[in-house]
Design a protein around this nucleic acid. Structure first.
Lengths: 252, 252
DNA sequence: AGTTGACTTTGACGCAGCGTAATACTTTAT
DNA sequence: ATAAAGTATTACGCTGCGTCAAAGTCAACT
């Protein structure tokens, strides 16, 4: 079935102007261009638009959305599962906001006291600080590491410099890790250097370095299949090796 | 208790740049400027910032937020009650989105069929069309007519022209209504003219004029204290008069 | 007191993601 | 055939900041 841009616009609520913009930036190309010059969309395009709107709902930039959708391993069913989880978290944030309102009313009426910090619980900006550890990690494994770091960088207002530094550290940590794995000594100088770099990478995104968290992250890399797969792509056995090296590093 | 902009920023998650911008546009002035030139915020400013963030959460522009907050009849407790209601509606929208995802998954697996229109249920843009009647009315009475019409205009992508036409019609309807009230005949030419204008104003925001809706709106103006207050500000007894005039108009 | 790093200001440029509008061509309905 | 609706391209502008440079202020340390 085919649709004109007006029909797609009415169906989705996205303006025709927006559809043209999406075509222009390569985010959503029409199925074909009629002899009149009119854009014609098909089933696949509607499905893509739906995905775009879900990612927009999660706060991704159009550039990031394009990357995610064009990744060779993009899987629609997996994406839906991710949307489901994220919508649930978003719903929780709304619950927190609702709680903030009810508490604010009670405070206004003198029925209870409320700290100034509490007044901002649930707002998007404040949520980043509260949930950075879990938020970052969970999204990262679901959506891919690069897109997440970009998303986090944008949300947190990190400078390009700082973000680039994080990228450099991560890349160097992984390269060092790979070299250390060839030697095979988690207590060795190279492995400990990799851990040091890894910790520095971690510190770019956290208020400050936390040894316990670093250690638990190493365990997570082994315990969670998806992380394990990610690291074993660097080299087989990498996840366990890094976990062991981190344990030694944090014990030192 | 006083706070520096850094402290407010950390507490609320709003950047210092944003705080400066809010000061610049008159949205959130600091309590005072220290001798150093630094902005110092107090309790009242924190409370105002909280309100700003709630309205932003509802999608209001900063200009509209400033108008709402500076209105002589702005009441914080009433505002909280409104935020509560709006957050609930927002939560319902999320539920609809979640439903859309689960249905999409089922459709993907071939377990059920899904129309193309259904794929977009719950997205912000699509929600406007589905709920315009109730959505517009409820927000209007809660937040003030002008702000709502501006908000709706923005959301719906109305042209400035069309919006201005709606404004002109509303103003003329109210002026005519006032003059008709002085005559005192709801069936009179002037009163019926006011109803005609009022109906035309209604039609600017609806897909098409609906007599039943127009009539129920007249009843609402009398039944709901806040509407009654609004119209009786034009002239005492105005709400009932308009309700009566509309009933006659719609019976004609 | 001097130094350094963190904090804060003002001024200014640029960006994402469109909305709006003009002009001209195409399609649809009467 | 005509008029209205639909659609394209081109181009400007807007909101709400993010980023950055330059300079002043504050706080902690030596």
């Amino acid at each position: 079935m085919e649709y004109s841009s007006n029909q797609v616009s009415k169906m989705s609520g996205v303006s025709a102007r927006t559809l043209r913009y999406y075509d222009e930036i390569g985010l959503l190309k029409p199925a074909r261009i009629a002899s009149s010059g009119y854009r014609i969309y098909g089933q696949a395009e509607l499905d893509t638009l739906q995905q775009i709107l879900f990612y927009k709902e999660m706060g991704f930039s159009l550039t990031d959305i394009r990357k995610l959708l064009s990744a060779p391993d993009f899987d629609r069913e997996q994406a839906f599962m991710n949307h489901l989880a994220e919508l649930s978290k978003k719903r929780e944030r709304l619950d927190t906001l609702i709680e903030t309102v009810t508490k604010s009313i009670a405070a206004l009426r003198g029925e209870q006291t409320m700290s100034d910090k509490e007044k901002f619980r649930g707002f998007k900006q404040a949520m980043i600080d509260e949930n950075e550890h879990q938020y970052g990690t969970e999204i990262r494994e679901k959506y891919g590491e690069e897109a997440i770091e970009r998303s986090n960088a944008r949300i947190k207002g990190m400078t390009h410099e700082r973000y680039a530094e994080g990228e450099r550290l991560r890349q160097e940590a992984e390269d060092t890790l790979k070299a250390a794995l060839e030697i095979g000594d988690p207590a060795g100088e190279l492995a400990q250097k990799a851990c040091d770099l890894h910790g520095k990478w971690l510190a770019v995104f956290q208020p400050e370095y936390n040894k316990a968290y670093h250690k638990s992250l190493g365990e997570l890399y082994v315990a969670d299949e998806r992380f394990k797969v990610y690291y074993d792509k660097i080299a087989p056995g990498c996840a366990e090796f890094l976990r062991d090296a981190i344990n030694i590093y944090c014990a030192g």
